[in-house]
Amino acid sequence: MSRRYPVALATLAAALACVANVSAQSYEAGEQEPALRLPTDPRLWHNSPPLTLESLKGKGVVFYLFEEESPRIAANWPNLQGLSKQYEGKPVLFVAVSSGTDPRVLKRYLGQYRVGWPVIHDYDRSLERAMAVPQLNPGGDEFAFRYVAGDGSMGQGKGADVAGTAEAALKGAAWRVDPAEVPEKLKGAWRAVELGSFTAAARPLTQAAESKDDELKAGAEKLLAAVEEELTSAAKEAQESLNEGDDWHAYKLLESIPQRFDGYEFDLIERAEDKTKELAKSDTVKGQIAAAKMLGKAMATASRGPSGVNRAKGLLNRLVEEHPDTEAAVKAQELLASIGS
Rank of each mutant, 00 (worst) to 15 (best):
E31I: 06
F66G: 06
T11W: 14
M294N: 05
K297F: 04
K158N: 11
A17M: 08
E244A: 13
P179E: 00
K286C: 06
L223C: 00
E88C: 03
S84C: 04
L9H: 15
G82E: 01
P50K: 08
T301N: 01
G116N: 12
G245P: 04
S48A: 11
L9W: 05
V61K: 12
A163D: 15
D178K: 07
F143P: 04
H323T: 04
S98I: 02
E230A: 08
W77P: 07
L336E: 01
Q25M: 09
S303M: 08
E278D: 05
E244V: 04
G155W: 11
R4F: 13
D41V: 14
E270V: 15
A312D: 02
G308A: 05
K297N: 08
L336V: 00
R108C: 04
T199V: 10
S55A: 10
L254R: 01
D213N: 07
K158Y: 05
Q112C: 03
A144G: 03
L316S: 05
L335Y: 03
A96S: 13
S2I: 15
V62F: 15
P34E: 11
S197A: 08
L253Y: 02
E278I: 03
N21W: 07
Q207Y: 06
N310T: 09
E334Y: 00
A14V: 02
V320E: 01
E128C: 12
A290G: 14
P179I: 03
G219M: 13
E334A: 14
Y147D: 06
Q333V: 01
E240G: 14
F63P: 12
E244Q: 13
D283L: 10
A200V: 00
Y109Q: 00
A10D: 10
E67S: 08
A337F: 04
L242N: 15
S126I: 03
V62R: 04
L44P: 07
W77E: 15
K158F: 10
A180W: 10
G296M: 07
T101I: 11
R108S: 08
